[in-house]
Structures are given as C-alpha cells and as structure tokens.
Write a protein that binds this DNA or RNA. Structure first.
Length: 188
DNA sequence: CTGGTGATGCAC
DNA sequence: TGCATCACCAGG
C-alpha cells in the first residue's frame, strides 16, 4: 500500500465524462478522507436519460432545486443527501457543468483505518462523511478520490453489471457496476 | 418481513 | 399546510 497522500488525485477531466464511464472508472480507485481510505468496489449511475428515456430514479429528474443544485454544477464534487431520516449517501458529480449526472458510491474495500463498509449508508458512517460535505470539491483534501490504477484503466477484477438496488422507477436498467467476486460488494 | 427517522417536493 | 415518498439498515 503506497502512501495515500502520494497517490495522484483524479483530475477534473475524468469526472467530465459521461456518467456511466465515470461510474465504471471509479471502480478500483481510492476514496480518502483524512486518515481513512477505502477502495471503491460498487457504484450506481444516475443519469439525465438512458437510451433516450428520462431517468426518473435520479434526483435531478425533478429539476434544479436547492438539494439538486450541485448535480447540475461542475464535475468532481460531492452530492451528499439524507435518506430515510438516518443514512447519508455519497454521490460523485459527473458530466460537464450544466448536464446532470452522478454516481452513488455503494461499497468500499477497507484500505486504511476503515471498518467493512458494504452499503451506501454504512460507508458514509465509516468514512465520517455527512451533509456537511455537500458540494465539496473532490480534487482537494481532506476528501479526495485518488488513483490506484490509471484513470481509464481496468481493475484486476471483472466489472459486472446489474439493475440498481432499492429503486422503483427504471428498475431494470443495468446501471449498477461492481467488481465481480469482491467480498465487500453489498448483498442483494 | 418490519419499524425507525426526517428532508423533500408537490398537492391543496 | 399536510402528506406520500424515499438511491437504507438492523433486528427477528
């Protein structure tokens, strides 16, 4: 394990790509918050539209509001929201500024000072991330995403695809991506 | 399977 | 102003 602060931070151009490419590209990379770090092993894409159909499961589908503002802003920032009154969920903003799109981080493999964190609510708790990080620029400490592999490289494990978990709209769309066989991927 | 918990968006 | 909804999790 190299020194975390020496790992390159993922550049702005990476996040400006289409959301699905950002989602796949985030797999195998490191989330670093202070002295804690984990490797991303499971994500979901939330887009403006997929195959010409509007993604009604995406928070941005109801337009620009105080909560969704950051999703329409410049890429590489954190969208954090509260769900079911208890759990905070971390999303990464993708697409060029003005186009909504974000990636939900669903599970991490522990790297440094992190307990197992399978599931979007558990991982924010484990990393110490909350709504106070809403809009944080992920190119700057203390919360960064750093490359363990080249920005558009392939992780050693195969990337598997499945429907997104826990949603009602667009339930069959294959927008969940995870590292096949990784034991830290969340259960279905 | 169920209940807890509170912000959000929209109907009225 | 009310209320249905919600990208979750722990417990049984």
């Amino acid at each position: 394990m190299p020194e975390l602060s020496e790992l390159p931070v993922l550049p702005r151009e990476f996040y400006a790509q289409p959301t699905i490419e950002v989602a796949r590209g985030l797999l195998g990379q490191a989330i670093v918050h202070g002295d804690r770090a984990g490797r991303i092993v499971e994500v979901e894409a939330y887009v403006a539209s997929y195959k010409g159909i509007s993604d009604q499961a995406a928070h941005s589908s109801r337009g620009l509001t105080p909560r969704t503002r950051v999703i329409f802003g410049p890429p590489g920032h954190a969208y954090v929201y509260l769900i079911y009154g208890i759990h905070e969920c971390l999303n990464i903003v993708a697409e060029p500024e003005g186009t909504p799109g974000c990636v939900l981080i669903r599970a991490l493999e522990p790297l440094v000072n992190l307990p197992p964190a399978s599931g979007p609510g558990k991982l924010t708790r484990a990393l110490g991330i909350s709504r106070s990080h809403y809009g944080h620029d992920l190119l700057h400490p203390p919360l960064t995403i750093r490359q363990l592999i080249p920005p558009n490289g392939r992780p050693p494990e195969t990337i598997a695809t499945s429907p997104r978990i826990g949603i009602r709209h667009c339930a069959e769309w294959p927008l969940r991506f995870f590292l096949r066989g990784n034991p830290h991927v969340s259960r279905r």
